[in-house]
Design a protein around this nucleic acid. Structure first.
Lengths: 228, 228
DNA sequence: GAAGATTATGTCAGTGACTGCCATTCGGCA
DNA sequence: TGCCGAATGGCAGTCACTGACATAATCTTC
Protein backbone atom coordinates (compact mmCIF):
# COMPACT_ATOMS: atom_id res chain seq x y z
CA UNK A 1 0.00 0.00 0.00
CA UNK A 2 2.83 2.43 0.68
CA UNK A 3 4.06 3.73 -2.63
CA UNK A 4 6.41 6.59 -2.14
CA UNK A 5 8.60 8.18 -4.70
CA UNK A 6 10.55 11.29 -3.80
CA UNK A 7 8.32 14.35 -4.35
CA UNK A 8 11.11 15.89 -6.37
CA UNK A 9 14.84 15.51 -6.12
CA UNK A 10 15.31 19.14 -5.22
CA UNK A 11 16.61 20.95 -2.17
CA UNK A 12 14.17 21.63 0.66
CA UNK A 13 11.65 24.34 -0.14
CA UNK A 14 12.93 27.74 0.89
CA UNK A 15 9.79 28.63 2.86
CA UNK A 16 8.45 25.83 5.04
CA UNK A 17 10.82 23.26 6.46
CA UNK A 18 10.07 20.20 4.38
CA UNK A 19 11.25 16.74 5.33
CA UNK A 20 14.78 16.80 6.73
CA UNK A 21 17.93 15.62 5.05
CA UNK A 22 17.64 12.20 6.63
CA UNK A 23 14.22 11.64 5.17
CA UNK A 24 15.17 12.90 1.71
CA UNK A 25 18.18 10.64 1.70
CA UNK A 26 16.03 7.66 2.50
CA UNK A 27 13.62 8.42 -0.29
CA UNK A 28 16.47 8.83 -2.70
CA UNK A 29 17.96 5.49 -1.71
CA UNK A 30 14.60 3.82 -2.03
CA UNK A 31 14.01 5.27 -5.48
CA UNK A 32 17.51 4.35 -6.56
CA UNK A 33 16.99 0.76 -5.46
CA UNK A 34 13.73 0.52 -7.36
CA UNK A 35 15.30 2.02 -10.43
CA UNK A 36 18.34 -0.23 -10.36
CA UNK A 37 16.29 -3.32 -9.71
CA UNK A 38 13.94 -2.48 -12.52
CA UNK A 39 16.78 -1.95 -14.95
CA UNK A 40 18.47 -5.19 -13.97
CA UNK A 41 15.26 -7.20 -14.06
CA UNK A 42 14.53 -5.97 -17.56
CA UNK A 43 17.98 -6.67 -18.90
CA UNK A 44 18.76 -10.00 -17.22
CA UNK A 45 15.47 -11.30 -15.87
CA UNK A 46 14.21 -11.47 -12.31
CA UNK A 47 15.66 -14.81 -11.26
CA UNK A 48 19.04 -14.02 -12.78
CA UNK A 49 19.37 -10.84 -10.75
CA UNK A 50 20.62 -11.22 -7.20
CA UNK A 51 19.83 -8.89 -4.36
CA UNK A 52 23.55 -8.32 -3.99
CA UNK A 53 23.70 -6.97 -7.52
CA UNK A 54 20.89 -4.54 -6.90
CA UNK A 55 22.38 -3.37 -3.63
CA UNK A 56 25.84 -2.84 -4.96
CA UNK A 57 24.48 -1.03 -8.03
CA UNK A 58 23.22 1.58 -5.57
CA UNK A 59 26.24 1.15 -3.35
CA UNK A 60 24.49 0.01 -0.23
CA UNK A 61 24.86 -3.26 1.64
CA UNK A 62 22.57 -6.19 1.09
CA UNK A 63 21.41 -5.75 4.65
CA UNK A 64 20.22 -2.24 3.86
CA UNK A 65 18.29 -3.46 0.86
CA UNK A 66 16.29 -5.70 3.15
CA UNK A 67 15.57 -2.79 5.44
CA UNK A 68 13.81 -1.06 2.56
CA UNK A 69 12.07 -4.07 1.05
CA UNK A 70 10.91 -7.17 2.85
CA UNK A 71 11.92 -9.33 -0.08
CA UNK A 72 12.99 -9.32 -3.69
CA UNK A 73 9.42 -9.41 -4.93
CA UNK A 74 8.55 -6.21 -3.18
CA UNK A 75 11.04 -4.07 -5.03
CA UNK A 76 9.61 -5.30 -8.32
CA UNK A 77 6.03 -4.67 -7.32
CA UNK A 78 6.80 -1.25 -5.87
CA UNK A 79 6.39 0.36 -9.26
CA UNK A 80 2.89 -0.98 -9.60
CA UNK A 81 2.01 0.20 -6.13
CA UNK A 82 2.37 3.77 -7.36
CA UNK A 83 -0.17 3.19 -10.10
CA UNK A 84 -2.55 1.51 -7.70
CA UNK A 85 -2.45 4.44 -5.33
CA UNK A 86 -3.22 6.77 -8.20
CA UNK A 87 -6.23 4.71 -9.10
CA UNK A 88 -7.62 4.59 -5.57
CA UNK A 89 -7.16 8.31 -5.24
CA UNK A 90 -9.00 9.02 -8.49
CA UNK A 91 -11.76 6.64 -7.60
CA UNK A 92 -12.30 8.45 -4.32
CA UNK A 93 -12.88 11.68 -6.19
CA UNK A 94 -15.48 10.45 -8.65
CA UNK A 95 -18.87 12.09 -8.25
CA UNK A 96 -21.48 10.15 -6.32
CA UNK A 97 -23.98 10.18 -9.16
CA UNK A 98 -21.97 7.76 -11.25
CA UNK A 99 -22.69 4.11 -10.83
CA UNK A 100 -19.82 1.91 -9.66
CA UNK A 101 -18.76 0.74 -13.09
CA UNK A 102 -18.82 4.21 -14.55
CA UNK A 103 -16.77 5.51 -11.64
CA UNK A 104 -14.21 2.75 -11.88
CA UNK A 105 -13.85 3.13 -15.60
CA UNK A 106 -13.36 6.85 -15.36
CA UNK A 107 -10.91 6.46 -12.50
CA UNK A 108 -8.79 4.02 -14.45
CA UNK A 109 -8.58 6.28 -17.47
CA UNK A 110 -7.81 9.31 -15.34
CA UNK A 111 -5.16 7.59 -13.30
CA UNK A 112 -3.32 6.39 -16.37
CA UNK A 113 -3.50 9.80 -17.94
CA UNK A 114 -2.25 11.60 -14.85
CA UNK A 115 0.41 9.01 -14.23
CA UNK A 116 1.64 9.48 -17.77
CA UNK A 117 1.76 13.22 -17.28
CA UNK A 118 3.54 13.25 -13.94
CA UNK A 119 6.00 10.44 -14.40
CA UNK A 120 7.06 10.68 -18.00
CA UNK A 121 9.99 8.40 -17.54
CA UNK A 122 11.93 6.36 -14.99
CA UNK A 123 10.40 4.07 -12.41
CA UNK A 124 6.84 5.07 -11.79
CA UNK A 125 6.22 5.86 -15.44
CA UNK A 126 3.46 4.07 -17.26
CA UNK A 127 5.92 2.50 -19.62
CA UNK A 128 7.88 1.08 -16.74
CA UNK A 129 4.79 -0.37 -15.18
CA UNK A 130 3.84 -2.08 -18.40
CA UNK A 131 7.32 -3.49 -18.92
CA UNK A 132 7.17 -4.85 -15.42
CA UNK A 133 3.84 -6.51 -16.11
CA UNK A 134 5.47 -8.62 -18.76
CA UNK A 135 8.12 -9.85 -16.38
CA UNK A 136 5.57 -10.46 -13.65
CA UNK A 137 3.39 -12.50 -15.91
CA UNK A 138 6.05 -15.02 -16.63
CA UNK A 139 7.76 -15.20 -13.29
CA UNK A 140 5.64 -17.52 -11.17
CA UNK A 141 6.69 -16.17 -7.82
CA UNK A 142 6.16 -12.59 -8.93
CA UNK A 143 2.81 -13.39 -10.42
CA UNK A 144 1.77 -14.96 -7.15
CA UNK A 145 2.85 -11.95 -5.14
CA UNK A 146 1.15 -9.66 -7.61
CA UNK A 147 -2.13 -11.52 -7.38
CA UNK A 148 -1.98 -11.31 -3.63
CA UNK A 149 -1.60 -7.56 -3.82
CA UNK A 150 -4.36 -7.39 -6.37
CA UNK A 151 -6.66 -9.28 -4.03
CA UNK A 152 -5.93 -6.75 -1.31
CA UNK A 153 -6.61 -3.97 -3.72
CA UNK A 154 -9.93 -5.49 -4.65
CA UNK A 155 -11.00 -5.48 -1.06
CA UNK A 156 -10.12 -1.81 -0.77
CA UNK A 157 -12.10 -1.06 -3.90
CA UNK A 158 -15.03 -3.08 -2.61
CA UNK A 159 -15.09 -1.09 0.61
CA UNK A 160 -14.88 2.15 -1.33
CA UNK A 161 -17.77 1.20 -3.55
CA UNK A 162 -19.80 0.06 -0.58
CA UNK A 163 -19.21 3.42 1.07
CA UNK A 164 -20.25 5.29 -2.08
CA UNK A 165 -23.46 3.35 -2.28
CA UNK A 166 -24.11 3.37 1.42
CA UNK A 167 -24.01 -0.40 1.74
CA UNK A 168 -22.53 -2.72 4.31
CA UNK A 169 -20.09 -5.00 2.50
CA UNK A 170 -20.62 -7.68 5.12
CA UNK A 171 -24.31 -7.80 4.33
CA UNK A 172 -24.40 -7.08 0.65
CA UNK A 173 -22.17 -9.00 -1.72
CA UNK A 174 -22.58 -6.63 -4.62
CA UNK A 175 -19.60 -4.37 -3.93
CA UNK A 176 -17.34 -7.39 -3.57
CA UNK A 177 -18.60 -8.90 -6.78
CA UNK A 178 -18.33 -5.75 -8.80
CA UNK A 179 -14.80 -5.17 -7.53
CA UNK A 180 -13.90 -8.70 -8.54
CA UNK A 181 -15.39 -8.19 -11.97
CA UNK A 182 -13.42 -5.04 -12.38
CA UNK A 183 -10.23 -6.77 -11.29
CA UNK A 184 -10.83 -9.55 -13.70
CA UNK A 185 -11.37 -7.16 -16.56
CA UNK A 186 -8.07 -5.48 -15.81
CA UNK A 187 -6.30 -8.79 -15.64
CA UNK A 188 -7.88 -10.04 -18.84
CA UNK A 189 -6.77 -6.85 -20.53
CA UNK A 190 -3.24 -7.29 -19.21
CA UNK A 191 -3.12 -10.83 -20.45
CA UNK A 192 -4.30 -10.11 -23.94
CA UNK A 193 -2.10 -7.05 -24.10
CA UNK A 194 0.82 -9.24 -23.17
CA UNK A 195 -0.10 -11.82 -25.77
CA UNK A 196 -0.78 -9.62 -28.79
CA UNK A 197 2.06 -7.33 -29.34
CA UNK A 198 -0.10 -5.47 -31.84
CA UNK A 199 -1.46 -3.17 -29.22
CA UNK A 200 1.74 -1.91 -27.72
CA UNK A 201 2.39 0.89 -25.30
CA UNK A 202 0.06 2.58 -22.88
CA UNK A 203 -2.42 3.64 -25.57
CA UNK A 204 -2.92 0.07 -26.67
CA UNK A 205 -3.51 -0.95 -23.11
CA UNK A 206 -6.04 1.80 -22.49
CA UNK A 207 -7.83 0.87 -25.68
CA UNK A 208 -7.98 -2.75 -24.63
CA UNK A 209 -9.35 -1.91 -21.23
CA UNK A 210 -12.01 0.20 -22.89
CA UNK A 211 -12.97 -2.60 -25.22
CA UNK A 212 -13.28 -5.05 -22.37
CA UNK A 213 -15.35 -2.61 -20.38
CA UNK A 214 -17.73 -2.30 -23.29
CA UNK A 215 -18.33 -6.01 -23.11
CA UNK A 216 -19.25 -5.86 -19.48
CA UNK A 217 -22.82 -4.71 -19.88
CA UNK A 218 -23.76 -7.68 -22.04
CA UNK A 219 -21.71 -9.99 -19.84
CA UNK A 220 -23.45 -9.11 -16.61
CA UNK A 221 -27.00 -9.42 -17.78
CA UNK A 222 -28.60 -10.72 -20.87
CA UNK A 223 -29.38 -13.75 -22.85
CA UNK A 224 -26.34 -15.94 -22.98
CA UNK A 225 -27.42 -18.13 -25.81
CA UNK A 226 -27.33 -15.39 -28.40
CA UNK A 227 -24.48 -13.05 -29.38
CA UNK A 228 -24.45 -9.71 -27.64
CA UNK B 1 -3.25 -29.65 -11.91
CA UNK B 2 -1.97 -33.11 -11.07
CA UNK B 3 -3.66 -34.23 -7.91
CA UNK B 4 -2.98 -37.85 -7.32
CA UNK B 5 -3.63 -39.85 -4.23
CA UNK B 6 -3.05 -43.58 -4.31
CA UNK B 7 -6.15 -45.28 -5.67
CA UNK B 8 -6.06 -47.64 -2.70
CA UNK B 9 -3.13 -48.92 -0.72
CA UNK B 10 -3.80 -52.49 -1.72
CA UNK B 11 -1.88 -55.05 -3.69
CA UNK B 12 -2.21 -55.00 -7.49
CA UNK B 13 -5.56 -56.25 -8.74
CA UNK B 14 -5.46 -59.99 -9.33
CA UNK B 15 -6.80 -59.74 -12.88
CA UNK B 16 -5.22 -57.00 -14.99
CA UNK B 17 -1.68 -55.86 -14.28
CA UNK B 18 -2.20 -52.54 -12.57
CA UNK B 19 0.58 -50.02 -12.02
CA UNK B 20 3.82 -51.77 -11.07
CA UNK B 21 5.46 -51.83 -7.68
CA UNK B 22 7.61 -48.85 -8.52
CA UNK B 23 4.61 -46.70 -9.29
CA UNK B 24 2.68 -47.77 -6.21
CA UNK B 25 5.69 -47.02 -4.05
CA UNK B 26 5.94 -43.56 -5.51
CA UNK B 27 2.29 -42.82 -4.83
CA UNK B 28 2.68 -44.03 -1.30
CA UNK B 29 5.68 -41.80 -0.70
CA UNK B 30 3.89 -38.86 -2.19
CA UNK B 31 0.84 -39.38 -0.02
CA UNK B 32 3.00 -39.88 3.05
CA UNK B 33 4.82 -36.62 2.40
CA UNK B 34 1.56 -34.74 2.03
CA UNK B 35 0.19 -36.28 5.17
CA UNK B 36 3.28 -35.57 7.24
CA UNK B 37 3.55 -32.03 5.95
CA UNK B 38 -0.08 -31.37 6.67
CA UNK B 39 0.22 -32.66 10.22
CA UNK B 40 3.33 -30.62 10.90
CA UNK B 41 1.92 -27.45 9.37
CA UNK B 42 -1.16 -27.74 11.53
CA UNK B 43 0.73 -28.37 14.73
CA UNK B 44 3.66 -25.96 14.34
CA UNK B 45 2.75 -23.62 11.53
CA UNK B 46 4.04 -23.45 7.98
CA UNK B 47 7.06 -21.24 8.50
CA UNK B 48 8.17 -23.14 11.58
CA UNK B 49 8.24 -26.42 9.70
CA UNK B 50 11.38 -27.12 7.68
CA UNK B 51 11.52 -29.30 4.62
CA UNK B 52 14.05 -31.44 6.43
CA UNK B 53 11.51 -32.19 9.12
CA UNK B 54 8.91 -33.27 6.62
CA UNK B 55 11.37 -35.42 4.72
CA UNK B 56 12.73 -37.17 7.76
CA UNK B 57 9.24 -37.75 9.13
CA UNK B 58 8.72 -39.92 6.06
CA UNK B 59 12.28 -41.14 6.15
CA UNK B 60 13.40 -39.86 2.80
CA UNK B 61 16.13 -37.37 1.99
CA UNK B 62 15.45 -33.69 1.49
CA UNK B 63 16.54 -34.12 -2.10
CA UNK B 64 13.80 -36.66 -2.63
CA UNK B 65 11.20 -34.29 -1.21
CA UNK B 66 12.13 -31.80 -3.91
CA UNK B 67 11.76 -34.46 -6.56
CA UNK B 68 8.12 -34.83 -5.56
CA UNK B 69 7.31 -31.17 -4.96
CA UNK B 70 8.87 -28.18 -6.63
CA UNK B 71 8.76 -26.23 -3.39
CA UNK B 72 7.40 -26.14 0.11
CA UNK B 73 4.23 -24.38 -1.00
CA UNK B 74 3.31 -27.14 -3.37
CA UNK B 75 3.02 -29.82 -0.73
CA UNK B 76 0.62 -27.63 1.21
CA UNK B 77 -1.51 -26.84 -1.81
CA UNK B 78 -1.58 -30.43 -3.00
CA UNK B 79 -4.56 -31.20 -0.80
CA UNK B 80 -6.59 -28.44 -2.40
CA UNK B 81 -5.66 -29.66 -5.84
CA UNK B 82 -7.66 -32.80 -5.18
CA UNK B 83 -10.77 -30.78 -4.41
CA UNK B 84 -10.26 -28.64 -7.48
CA UNK B 85 -10.06 -31.67 -9.73
CA UNK B 86 -13.27 -32.96 -8.27
CA UNK B 87 -14.98 -29.71 -9.03
CA UNK B 88 -13.80 -29.54 -12.62
CA UNK B 89 -14.87 -33.10 -13.18
CA UNK B 90 -18.37 -32.47 -11.79
CA UNK B 91 -18.72 -29.29 -13.78
CA UNK B 92 -17.92 -31.17 -16.96
CA UNK B 93 -20.79 -33.54 -16.31
CA UNK B 94 -23.50 -30.96 -15.71
CA UNK B 95 -26.28 -31.03 -18.29
CA UNK B 96 -26.09 -28.49 -21.09
CA UNK B 97 -29.49 -27.02 -20.32
CA UNK B 98 -28.34 -25.38 -17.12
CA UNK B 99 -27.02 -21.89 -17.33
CA UNK B 100 -23.44 -21.33 -16.23
CA UNK B 101 -24.24 -20.21 -12.72
CA UNK B 102 -26.61 -23.08 -12.10
CA UNK B 103 -24.05 -25.55 -13.37
CA UNK B 104 -21.25 -24.13 -11.26
CA UNK B 105 -23.38 -24.05 -8.16
CA UNK B 106 -24.49 -27.64 -8.61
CA UNK B 107 -20.95 -28.75 -9.37
CA UNK B 108 -19.61 -27.19 -6.20
CA UNK B 109 -22.23 -28.84 -4.04
CA UNK B 110 -21.73 -32.20 -5.71
CA UNK B 111 -17.99 -32.10 -5.50
CA UNK B 112 -18.02 -31.34 -1.79
CA UNK B 113 -20.53 -34.05 -1.16
CA UNK B 114 -18.61 -36.67 -3.13
CA UNK B 115 -15.31 -35.61 -1.67
CA UNK B 116 -16.75 -36.01 1.79
CA UNK B 117 -17.97 -39.48 0.94
CA UNK B 118 -14.81 -40.77 -0.69
CA UNK B 119 -12.19 -39.25 1.55
CA UNK B 120 -13.68 -39.36 5.01
CA UNK B 121 -10.42 -38.65 6.71
CA UNK B 122 -6.71 -38.07 6.13
CA UNK B 123 -5.27 -35.75 3.52
CA UNK B 124 -7.75 -35.22 0.77
CA UNK B 125 -10.67 -35.08 3.17
CA UNK B 126 -12.87 -32.05 3.26
CA UNK B 127 -11.91 -31.34 6.83
CA UNK B 128 -8.24 -31.35 5.88
CA UNK B 129 -8.86 -28.97 3.05
CA UNK B 130 -10.68 -26.57 5.31
CA UNK B 131 -8.00 -26.70 7.97
CA UNK B 132 -5.46 -25.95 5.31
CA UNK B 133 -7.44 -22.95 4.13
CA UNK B 134 -7.00 -21.36 7.53
CA UNK B 135 -3.24 -21.75 7.37
CA UNK B 136 -3.14 -20.53 3.82
CA UNK B 137 -5.10 -17.43 4.63
CA UNK B 138 -2.62 -16.21 7.17
CA UNK B 139 0.60 -17.28 5.54
CA UNK B 140 1.39 -14.61 2.95
CA UNK B 141 3.53 -16.75 0.71
CA UNK B 142 0.98 -19.57 0.74
CA UNK B 143 -1.86 -17.21 0.06
CA UNK B 144 0.04 -15.85 -2.91
CA UNK B 145 0.69 -19.30 -4.31
CA UNK B 146 -2.91 -20.25 -3.72
CA UNK B 147 -4.24 -17.23 -5.55
CA UNK B 148 -2.00 -18.03 -8.47
CA UNK B 149 -3.44 -21.50 -8.66
CA UNK B 150 -6.92 -20.10 -8.29
CA UNK B 151 -6.31 -17.80 -11.22
CA UNK B 152 -5.28 -20.77 -13.35
CA UNK B 153 -8.35 -22.61 -12.22
CA UNK B 154 -10.53 -19.68 -13.22
CA UNK B 155 -9.14 -19.79 -16.70
CA UNK B 156 -9.92 -23.47 -16.95
CA UNK B 157 -13.47 -22.82 -15.77
CA UNK B 158 -13.85 -19.97 -18.22
CA UNK B 159 -12.81 -22.20 -21.10
CA UNK B 160 -15.19 -24.89 -19.93
CA UNK B 161 -18.09 -22.48 -19.74
CA UNK B 162 -17.22 -21.06 -23.12
CA UNK B 163 -17.28 -24.56 -24.58
CA UNK B 164 -20.64 -25.32 -22.97
CA UNK B 165 -22.15 -22.19 -24.43
CA UNK B 166 -20.39 -22.48 -27.75
CA UNK B 167 -18.53 -19.22 -27.40
CA UNK B 168 -15.02 -18.16 -28.22
CA UNK B 169 -13.43 -16.89 -25.00
CA UNK B 170 -11.10 -14.67 -26.97
CA UNK B 171 -14.04 -12.87 -28.53
CA UNK B 172 -16.59 -12.92 -25.78
CA UNK B 173 -15.67 -11.82 -22.29
CA UNK B 174 -18.67 -13.29 -20.58
CA UNK B 175 -17.19 -16.68 -19.69
CA UNK B 176 -14.15 -14.99 -18.19
CA UNK B 177 -16.28 -12.63 -16.19
CA UNK B 178 -18.63 -15.26 -14.89
CA UNK B 179 -15.70 -17.46 -13.87
CA UNK B 180 -14.21 -14.53 -12.02
CA UNK B 181 -17.48 -13.85 -10.28
CA UNK B 182 -17.69 -17.45 -9.25
CA UNK B 183 -14.13 -17.42 -7.97
CA UNK B 184 -14.79 -14.31 -5.99
CA UNK B 185 -17.87 -15.81 -4.40
CA UNK B 186 -15.85 -18.81 -3.29
CA UNK B 187 -13.14 -16.64 -1.90
CA UNK B 188 -15.59 -14.38 -0.11
CA UNK B 189 -17.18 -17.44 1.43
CA UNK B 190 -13.78 -18.75 2.52
CA UNK B 191 -12.94 -15.45 4.12
CA UNK B 192 -16.11 -15.08 6.06
CA UNK B 193 -16.00 -18.73 7.04
CA UNK B 194 -12.51 -18.13 8.35
CA UNK B 195 -13.57 -15.05 10.25
CA UNK B 196 -16.76 -16.28 11.91
CA UNK B 197 -16.11 -19.47 13.69
CA UNK B 198 -19.85 -19.81 14.14
CA UNK B 199 -20.23 -21.70 10.93
CA UNK B 200 -17.69 -24.40 11.41
CA UNK B 201 -17.00 -27.55 9.48
CA UNK B 202 -17.90 -28.42 5.93
CA UNK B 203 -21.64 -27.91 6.43
CA UNK B 204 -21.10 -24.33 7.56
CA UNK B 205 -18.98 -23.70 4.52
CA UNK B 206 -21.52 -25.17 2.13
CA UNK B 207 -24.24 -23.10 3.76
CA UNK B 208 -22.16 -19.97 3.36
CA UNK B 209 -21.46 -20.64 -0.28
CA UNK B 210 -25.17 -21.15 -0.84
CA UNK B 211 -26.02 -17.89 0.84
CA UNK B 212 -23.50 -16.00 -1.24
CA UNK B 213 -24.78 -17.60 -4.39
CA UNK B 214 -28.26 -16.43 -3.54
CA UNK B 215 -27.01 -12.89 -3.49
CA UNK B 216 -25.56 -13.18 -6.93
CA UNK B 217 -28.76 -12.62 -8.86
CA UNK B 218 -29.36 -9.25 -7.27
CA UNK B 219 -25.69 -8.40 -7.50
CA UNK B 220 -25.33 -8.98 -11.20
CA UNK B 221 -28.31 -7.02 -12.36
CA UNK B 222 -30.66 -4.68 -10.70
CA UNK B 223 -31.03 -1.31 -9.18
CA UNK B 224 -28.10 -0.68 -6.92
CA UNK B 225 -29.56 2.17 -4.99
CA UNK B 226 -32.24 0.10 -3.35
CA UNK B 227 -31.93 -3.03 -1.23
CA UNK B 228 -32.33 -6.32 -3.01
C1' DG C 1 16.76 -66.21 -13.13
C1' DA C 2 20.74 -63.47 -14.42
C1' DA C 3 22.58 -59.54 -17.24
C1' DG C 4 21.64 -55.06 -18.59
C1' DA C 5 18.85 -50.91 -19.18
C1' DT C 6 15.87 -47.55 -16.42
C1' DT C 7 14.61 -44.98 -12.76
C1' DA C 8 14.35 -43.58 -7.91
C1' DT C 9 17.13 -42.29 -4.13
C1' DG C 10 20.98 -40.51 -1.31
C1' DT C 11 24.94 -37.59 -0.60
C1' DC C 12 27.39 -33.56 -1.06
C1' DA C 13 28.68 -29.19 -2.24
C1' DG C 14 27.10 -24.77 -3.54
C1' DT C 15 24.12 -20.54 -4.29
C1' DG C 16 21.12 -17.18 -2.87
C1' DA C 17 17.30 -15.19 0.02
C1' DC C 18 16.60 -13.60 4.39
C1' DT C 19 17.47 -12.61 9.72
C1' DG C 20 19.55 -11.36 14.28
C1' DC C 21 23.18 -9.10 16.47
C1' DC C 22 26.42 -5.68 17.41
C1' DA C 23 29.53 -1.97 16.18
C1' DT C 24 29.76 2.31 13.67
C1' DT C 25 28.33 6.37 11.56
C1' DC C 26 25.29 10.04 10.41
C1' DG C 27 21.52 13.56 10.86
C1' DG C 28 18.59 16.20 14.22
C1' DC C 29 18.72 19.07 17.90
C1' DA C 30 19.72 21.38 22.34
C1' DT D 1 29.86 21.40 20.29
C1' DG D 2 28.10 17.39 22.05
C1' DC D 3 24.51 14.18 22.89
C1' DC D 4 20.65 10.99 21.22
C1' DG D 5 18.24 8.21 18.17
C1' DA D 6 18.07 6.44 13.58
C1' DA D 7 20.34 4.45 9.46
C1' DT D 8 23.94 1.58 7.93
C1' DG D 9 27.46 -2.06 7.45
C1' DG D 10 29.44 -6.41 8.45
C1' DC D 11 29.02 -11.02 9.83
C1' DA D 12 27.52 -15.33 11.02
C1' DG D 13 23.87 -18.40 10.58
C1' DT D 14 19.51 -20.75 8.81
C1' DC D 15 16.89 -22.53 5.28
C1' DA D 16 14.96 -23.28 0.55
C1' DC D 17 16.44 -25.05 -3.50
C1' DT D 18 19.71 -27.11 -7.39
C1' DG D 19 23.27 -29.68 -10.08
C1' DA D 20 26.31 -33.60 -10.26
C1' DC D 21 27.45 -38.02 -9.38
C1' DA D 22 27.29 -42.54 -7.10
C1' DT D 23 24.28 -46.24 -5.39
C1' DA D 24 20.36 -49.09 -5.08
C1' DA D 25 16.03 -50.57 -6.40
C1' DT D 26 12.73 -51.98 -10.15
C1' DC D 27 11.81 -53.50 -14.84
C1' DT D 28 12.97 -56.04 -19.19
C1' DT D 29 14.64 -59.44 -22.01
C1' DC D 30 16.52 -63.48 -23.08
Amino acid sequence: MAAQLPPAATAPAAGGTGPGLRERKKQRTRAALIEAAHRLFLSQGFAQTTVDEIASAVDVSQRTFFRYFANKDEVALAVLAIAEDYFIDRLRRRPAEENPLQAMRAAIVESWRDLGAEHRTGPGSVTSALELLQIIEDTPTLLAAHLRRAAEQERVVARLIAAREGLDPAEDLRPTVIAAVFGSVLRAAHLSWNADQEESGPEGMIALIGRYFDQLGPALAGDWRHPA
